[in-house]
Write a protein that binds this DNA or RNA. Sequence first.
DNA 1: TCGCTGATACGGCATTGCCGTATGAGTTCT
DNA 2: AGAACTCATACGGCAATGCCGTATCAGCGA
Lengths: 94, 94
Amino acid sequence: MKSAFDKIAAGLEDAIAFAEGDETRGRIATVDVRAVRAVTRKTQDAFARAYRIPLGTLRDWEQGRRRPDSGSVTLLKMIEAEPETVERILAGVA
Amino acid sequence: MKSAFDKIAAGLEDAIAFAEGDETRGRIATVDVRAVRAVTRKTQDAFARAYRIPLGTLRDWEQGRRRPDSGSVTLLKMIEAEPETVERILAGVA
DNA sequence: TCGCTGATACGGCATTGCCGTATGAGTTCT
DNA sequence: AGAACTCATACGGCAATGCCGTATCAGCGA
């Protein structure tokens, strides 16, 4: 298991890769999912359950195998900005 | 153009259709997108821009041609519950 | 009648969602 | 040391969606 620091470092590297990289595709908006999760200090499993994302899908995103679509990107950015608020709203949404 | 009432009625019908209908597929969670939009009283175009969803994709959802994935479903439920809060957060997220 | 707006309807391809399974490192037991 | 558990990487694979575009239509104001 990596240290928390290494996790965040990995996240930053991914962010840089995205920033420098392609951009060659239709999808403009993007997010570093691992960096978002780092903000919440949750495990993949906890994060997935908290924000109602299938665990396997979350892993695809973090491992760079797939990119989240616009709706998920928006959700992830909201989580990054105000994780508690997002959780509060979801708690009252069945 | 339909009246606001008709729009909501259409939304309810869709919701019923979903509730009665299939359920035969993997995706469990679902939302009546038109009903969510009715809460916000926005046009498709305004809704799409406000919540960063491609207009064409939003239309696919409302017309029942496609179903939003889990991330988008979560976002939509948040919008339905607290549209202003969602807009406030997004306003500060570049 | 023309033009604008809000919306339906759908073709179509690249890409993703989401499922499953196998593997590996770190931790805590007994 | 070895077993058992947790957190995560890695990837096969198909159905389904994301997202683009274009054509058509109803209602409304100029």
